[in-house]
Design a protein around this nucleic acid. Structure first.
Lengths: 331, 331
DNA sequence: GTGAAAGCGCTAACAA
DNA sequence: TTGTTAGCGCTTTCAC
């Protein structure tokens, strides 16, 4: 069913149908009503692509995610959706699976699909990314990582959040703190969180032995393994563990539990993230909550301000984390 | 940058450009190379909308979800994405927030956006839904709920999965089993799982007092509350709890833990879902695992078979659940 | 109030 | 091998 067919049925021109559909220009009341009835009856829907082609506006925004089925991705998309829904926009989604080539490919596909803007949820940002963004001329907002040029981004204050937790452990009187991080390819989690942690230790001149610095890969299993390595590495035992994600904290606690080491009585453990898992796990994890829903929402808002005003006022939005006192730490 | 501009730059017609871009028809080697260089240089991308308009094919499929940020949704979308990615398709996503009107609205938007097919992840299926699907003529697959007409669907054998867990409890010698379900608006979870549970009890003529049948709302909190009500409702105490979701099982266990009732020593608890939360929670939940990644993948595959063959061979795919023995149940 | 015509960017016959 | 032409479905001047 096209506008032409409706026009024929109504014995008017396509212009008149267009006027009725878009409520623009004058149409005699009786004609309008007749057409409206016809549309209702036939179930006619205007073709959004034809419209987009003509008006050069797709009312679509593209979202590129490094992993589609993680709770942070889900929340981010939900936040984006919440904002754009009211604007009458729809979402087209791409899953890069942490693959840069795929990310670039998705960028191109989105370009072909005439998206009005792109939200890139990043874990790693390379100069290839930045070049691509610049070259494409599509309004883009980066989420989760600090941008390398003037592309606007929405991030958390990773350093502050990590240092807050480190301070918490220090205040609890901990002196032998082990650290479970992730690879530095993820700047926010791998570098900044570690930086925040180390900063606090440095301030009070506390040193950490190398055996207490481990690297995991975000999974529960890797937290378990890292914790095991820490315990099997030497004579010195930690009195606290700082894991940069809740999942890895849970892995560590699982190991400790199996070993009969009590959390928080024998050792304090903190994580980061604050997803619902950390809340219902026993012991409830002391953590720093990252609100990804907010991140998505603010990112979408920022993107729309660029799209509509065609001017870049805001370069960076830093979101606040919430320290959450759980039951995995005590004096 | 359009095909016309490239054509002008290359001093050829748009057809030739089109031939190069789509690798169709003959183009002289030198000309092809010149054009390819030009495309590379200018970053020209063919407009997918113009193409879609012409060929009446958008290479896009629409996915409607009742809730975007849940782990089952995430897995489902990941499964869909995995399949369609290889086909060169992209995903457009709509979040209905369990709102039927929004679902219908999304269906219309997808229709306007010329999607080649729709995957509807359902919790509730009404005749309005079925009418809409039928009227739209867009190839559609329903996920998670049995369809009311000939629209194909991918579902789990909820009754079987629930009865398997119920049998497990019976085999453990449990006689006073409390049940935490959800509202019947969700046919799969609210009705079928209960049905599977009750079927087993009926077979051995085991009766359940009304105070042992509670309704939650999927959340951990509601499981906690339901369990509390069960314990506060009378003198009889259960020796097992059957929760239709892992989250509610975890809520129940949290209550029991607070009361000093040991799981599984004093009481056995089973959940359903088998997400990673149930795996790492302590005690590990005895549950039935639903593989939503598979559901998404199979759903997409089914949809493509309809799109490409234009014939409906398969009406229903029933996925297998995996019984997972955890540590929340024992003899 | 309404219609005719142009054109958004592209592909596919058909000619040349 | 290449170009010409028509047209996908729509909106928007510009006439009438």
């Amino acid at each position: 069913m096209t506008i032409k067919e409706i026009a024929k049925l109504a014995n008017v021109s396509t212009s008149t149908i267009s006027r009725v559909v878009n409520d623009s220009g004058y149409v005699k009341k009786e004609v309008r009503e007749k057409i409206e009835a016809l549309i209702e009856e036939t179930g006619y829907r205007p073709n959004a692509y034809a419209k987009a082609l003509l008006l050069n506006k797709s009312h679509t925004i593209g979202v590129i995610l490094p992993k589609i089925n993680s709770s942070s991705s889900g929340d981010t998309v939900a936040g984006i959706d919440e904002y754009i829904h009211d604007k009458g926009y729809t979402l087209i989604l791409g899953n890069s699976n942490h693959n840069i080539n795929r990310e670039i490919e998705l960028y191109k596909i989105f370009q072909e699909k005439m998206v009005d803007g792109i939200i890139l949820v990043a874990t790693e940002l390379t100069s290839s990314h930045m070049k691509l963004i610049e070259k494409s001329k599509i309004p883009t907002v980066i989420l989760g990582q600090e941008s390398l040029d003037s592309t606007p981004c929405v991030i958390f204050d990773e350093i502050y959040a990590a240092s807050q937790l480190a301070k918490h452990l220090i205040e609890l009187g901990r002196k032998n703190i082990a650290f479970i991080g992730v690879g530095e390819y993820d700047v926010a989690v791998g570098i900044k969180r570690k930086e925040g942690f180390l900063k606090v230790l440095k301030e009070i001149n506390l040193k950490i032995p190398n055996e207490f610095m481990k690297i995991g890969d975000f999974t529960v299993e890797s937290g378990y393994k890292a914790c095991k390595e820490i315990y099997e590495s030497g004579q010195l035992k930690p009195d606290a563990i700082f894991a940069v994600t809740d999942k890895m904290a849970i892995g560590a606690i699982t190991y400790l539990f199996e070993k009969g080491i009590k959390v928080p009585e024998d050792i304090s453990v903190v994580g980061m993230g604050g997803g619902y898992f950390s809340k219902y796990f026993r012991p409830k994890i002391t953590t720093s909550k990252f609100n990804y829903l907010d991140m998505g929402y603010e990112g979408a808002k920022l993107l729309f301000s660029i799209i509509s005003e065609n001017v870049l006022r805001t370069k960076k939005i830093v979101l606040n984390n919430e320290f959450i006192m759980g039951e995995s730490t005590k004096v």
